[in-house]
């Protein structure tokens, strides 16, 4: 447990938090798999490794660093206005999330973030599917602690109805990957996409443990 105390204040909670959480998670895993449109576990690529809370939490902290980087957190804001820039200020023109996360009338994300954008300094990055999480499932990253974010990510009620398998696949989502192609003048996340994907999958396959609160 030593190695993850560096990410936060030493917790006063007993070690069993992890154990309790892992039970909770296995329930989720079970549920997700049960309700997965008739697909069998053997047909999915979700191959669970041995549960290892230490390994899992370690991997998650790498994931967390990426998800809290401007390229990810900027479109997972706490409010209904996305963030902008490497300093994650409120997007200056205050575009609204809208119902579907794609903006509202004049201020649709795609009016500026087009399928492919013109290259150049300060140019908004483009993607065919630019959007925020929808209004009914905001999937907020901004301000989340590692514990909160991990819990949020594995819970289909807060993660966009994703099974763990879907979560793994999400690492290769076009918009997720766009974070590593942010256009001139913007920093990329602290890990490469490959490293991120590896950490992401490791985190999930080793039990999707959440760091201590």
């Amino acid at each position: 447990m030593q190695h993850h105390s560096k990410f936060g204040k030493p917790s006063s909670l007993p070690v069993k938090t992890i154990a309790v959480l892992s039970v909770f998670l296995s329930v989720i895993i079970l549920m997700s798999f049960t309700f997965k449109n008739g697909s069998k576990i053997s047909n999915t690529k979700l191959e669970m490794m041995n549960k290892d809370s230490v390994e899992s939490v370690k991997a998650f902290m790498d994931v967390y660093r990426v998800l809290m980087s401007p390229r990810c957190v900027n479109c997972h804001p706490a409010g209904d206005v996305p963030l902008q820039g490497d300093d994650s200020h409120l997007h200056l023109m205050a575009p609204q999330r809208g119902k579907d996360g794609k903006g509202i009338n004049v201020m649709k994300c795609s009016n500026c973030h087009q399928p492919t954008n013109v290259a150049g300094l300060n140019m908004p990055p483009g993607d065919p599917n630019w959007h925020l999480p929808p209004a009914n499932m905001k999937m907020v990253f901004e301000g989340r602690t590692p514990n909160q974010l991990a819990r949020q990510l594995v819970n289909p009620k807060t993660n966009g109805n994703k099974t763990l398998q879907k979560l793994i696949e999400h690492a290769d989502d076009g918009l997720v990957k766009a974070g590593w192609n942010p256009g001139e003048g913007r920093t990329v996340p602290p890990l490469s996409h490959e490293e991120f994907k590896k950490a992401w999958i490791t985190w999930i396959r080793t039990g999707a443990y959440a760091p201590r609160p």
């Binding site: 200056l92 023109m93 009338n105 004049v106 649709k108 795609s110 009016n111 500026c112 087009q114 399928p115 492919t116 954008n117 013109v118 150049g120 300094l121 300060n122 140019m123 908004p124 483009g126």
Partner: peptide, 28 residues
């Protein structure tokens, strides 16, 4: 105005959507 979709001086309608023509490739 800015060339980077920040000021709106270049807004035109593309199939009715108010796109910023400074970042819209003509091919689109």
């Amino acid at each position: 105005g800015c060339g980077v979709a920040q000021c709106g001086a270049c807004v035109v309608h593309l199939n009715g959507e108010a796109v910023r023509s400074c970042v819209t490739k003509v091919s689109r």
